[in-house]
Amino acid sequence: MAQSEDGGLHIDPMSQFLVKPLFGGEMGLFTITNATLWMALAVGASSLLLIGAVKQRALVPGRAQSVAELLYGFVRQLVVDITGEEGLKYFPYIFTLFVFILFSNLLGMLPYSFAVTSHIAVTGVLALMVFVTVTAIGFIKHGAHFLGFFWPKDAPGPLRPVLMVIELISYFVRPISHSIRLGANMLAGHAVLKVFAGFVGALGVFGVVPLAAMVGLTAFEFLVAVIQAYVFAILTCVYLNDALHMH
């Protein structure tokens, strides 16, 4: 923490988000970067928990198996809550999304790690996948009737085209806000942590104040990491529910 050799503020909150090639060399389309590494670690860690710990299938679960079962039960409950029994067909997808985001967020909290989900490129792809899937489900389930989703039937006649444009825009708002929310939350949290860490070095003895704040902020970031995974899963369910039942 004592990195104030030159006396000045040493705040560089954004460099932690740099995507770098792991093994040197030029950055190409398929270069393995730190982002690749931490995504792979998220997949590995979640597999370890959900496959490894449940392998024994103990009737009375141990600690790790309990965690896995709780996670499963929690998301299943969520899916049923929002989409009803019909949504359970898509539960594996939502569960995968939730666990991946949760682990990426939590692994991002490790010192010297890389917060994959702070990149809009990552969250954008996740949200776009949800958007395309959900729209496809809507069209498969309802055929051309799904377009009725955008046509306000109860509105007075001349207003309908205007409202349709509004509905259309608001439909496309969803994937954007879906991805920005997760990405921005993680980005802001990690950047703020770094800023406070810079203050600790610069203030000398009084660095205890920002250090104390950082303890609280770190706890808060853990909360945010879990909540944002949860919110992402919830919204996926909500969008799915719209496609299934056309509210």
């Binding site: 608001s170 708002v173 806000s177 920005i180 929310r181 939350n185 909540i227 949860y230 919110v231 919830i234």
Partner: peptide
């Protein structure tokens, strides 16, 4: 999860509004 989801909902609505205008 009531309290947590109230805060999450507030956040969600804010981003939705901002993104709507931006889009």
């Amino acid at each position: 999860e009531e309290k947590v989801s109230a805060a999450a909902l507030a956040w969600r609505m804010t981003t939705e509004l901002v993104v709507g205008v931006g889009l």
